[in-house]
Design a binder for these strands. Sequence first.
DNA 1: ATGAAAGCGCTAACAA
DNA 2: TTGTTAGCGCTTTCAT
Lengths: 355, 355
Amino acid sequence: MSQRPTLADVASAAGVSVSTASLAFSGAGPIADATRQRVLDAAAELGYSGPNPLGRQLRSGRSGIVGVVVGDALRRSFRDPVSVQLLDGLVDTIGPLGLGVLLIPGPTSPGGPAVDPLVEAAAMDVAVMLWGGTLDDPTLEALARRGIPVVVVEGHELSGVVTVGIDDRGGVAELAAHLRDLGHRRVATVTLPFGPERQGGLADLARREQIAWSIPRRRLEGLLDAGVEPVGVYEAPASLVEHGSAAARALLSGPPETRPTAVVAQSDMLAAGVVLGARELGLRVPEDVSVAGFDGLDLPWLAPDTLTTVVQPIAEKGATVGRVIQAVLAGEHPADDVLPVSLRVGTTTTAAPGA
Amino acid sequence: MSQRPTLADVASAAGVSVSTASLAFSGAGPIADATRQRVLDAAAELGYSGPNPLGRQLRSGRSGIVGVVVGDALRRSFRDPVSVQLLDGLVDTIGPLGLGVLLIPGPTSPGGPAVDPLVEAAAMDVAVMLWGGTLDDPTLEALARRGIPVVVVEGHELSGVVTVGIDDRGGVAELAAHLRDLGHRRVATVTLPFGPERQGGLADLARREQIAWSIPRRRLEGLLDAGVEPVGVYEAPASLVEHGSAAARALLSGPPETRPTAVVAQSDMLAAGVVLGARELGLRVPEDVSVAGFDGLDLPWLAPDTLTTVVQPIAEKGATVGRVIQAVLAGEHPADDVLPVSLRVGTTTTAAPGA
DNA sequence: ATGAAAGCGCTAACAA
DNA sequence: TTGTTAGCGCTTTCAT
């Protein structure tokens, strides 16, 4: 037998029909113990290691694959602990369902194709978009054209897709109120990138009107909800420590009279960068400037400090996405889901200087 | 048409045969421009978005899937920037080949099944094992049984699988020689986990003999190659900052006369933790204790310090794995590959105190 | 340049 | 409980 053996080979070796042999492996039907054993023995004899998934998939119309479109190049996405933990929660949930995760890079370079070839051609039963795109996202269009159901994490609430998100706007509002109560009147903010162009730098009012991605917009709105009009808005090109430090240099270099007394960053990585950047400027955290973040990450290298932050249930978000996927594959139409967040006060915020 | 249209539907709508319609999409054969256009028009009309990958895969016997077995739970693996960057390089290389990465969790809990169900049943053309297992790895066995070719990253050199690795032993030897030349005589080391049990803590000579995983073993041997017999060996349960700090507390708490003057960590994350832990103990780095790492990561949160480290070409390693995969799928038998590393001296090492 | 026909490996009605 | 039959959607000889 030069070829790999097939179920037909096993069946004939065991002296049964293919369908019976199939039952021996799937268990999806009545079969005598002795018969099954005979089939399994024949399989072992022939070195047959179970039904070929390709045949099974074509027959069942299911690939068992969940395509996960990460928001960007893997390198960038996975430097963000939030994406990683979410993915982890997702895998934990759908693994036992027999589903696997296919990694699909998001649109990477402006020059390249608008969508990854995998989006157009890979087998998948459902797709998950991390950092869900905008309404006219070409990836979304391609998936819709293929008839692949989509679950969007933290994106716009679109028709035809299920969204799983968090109450980040409310969380930031709570955080802003906390700072306000501490006497802070000059609050600056460091945001996640506004859109795919990832411009970076201080943003004026005009640019603030054009925030394409929903996360930075909602979190900025949270500030305003609490009546905190930021005295400076810095757009980070990515959620990385170094961009937080750069933001600190841009926002905190002025004289004490006009310098912000608090900085709200839209992620913990950025907040940590702000802390480090502020210290490089010779400022004490939190005595001279309070710093707060978002996510609730565990950042051991910031020890002994712990960030004041809005804690989001990342792994649970992943698990929720997993459950939504399960429902979608069962033909249901699950509702959008918004998970709660909570404020956690650490060592990086205190009363405003002179307050 | 309640069902999704198939190629047959498109063909009949265009008034051609299925085989011709197939050619219109694949381009693998002669076809008149006008005919192709007619087929594509019919497809657009019907909302047909290209050949169903499941049918194509069964027919061709290829799934276009590369299964990547990460060494552990995703959460842990992906907290390690090395895994992430490697994966990034891999995806960049195989993406243009039309291949996608299926994430497969490694054995996670001792209680659970020995291998992830995806290893047994998922469609894949080739598998990559990060942190390649030991000789009797059940994952390796399962893949062999299924006849799936395996590429192992940084593992034992086994027969039947292709290995891609780096000259870590030589790199550590070079690093050790550097420290020796700086006058260091009492050198301690912090290793990666010895094996799946991830015991953690100070390791005596007996335990050192039982290092199951090849990376910690080779890097430890590198020290010995340079004539540096470590005065203390601390096994970290994972390559995380906090374990490096714990190692520092365990190794550097003694009096100056016996305290190690240098610590070699087997990863940059661990080294960074050692730096932070040493500072918490009131020690200056590098004046009181020199610290070196391995990997060559960019750690902005350690600024203004930069680690002395052995730089490995991580992304290139991923790209190499990608090329090896390509060769394997082409039916070739590529040779094992060992990539070079280089010593990079940063600000965390200097002459031994009193030397 | 196009069409007819076979079959990749499997599962699921249905019949026995 | 087992066998027969059909067909999932596609690609690919081989004829025409």
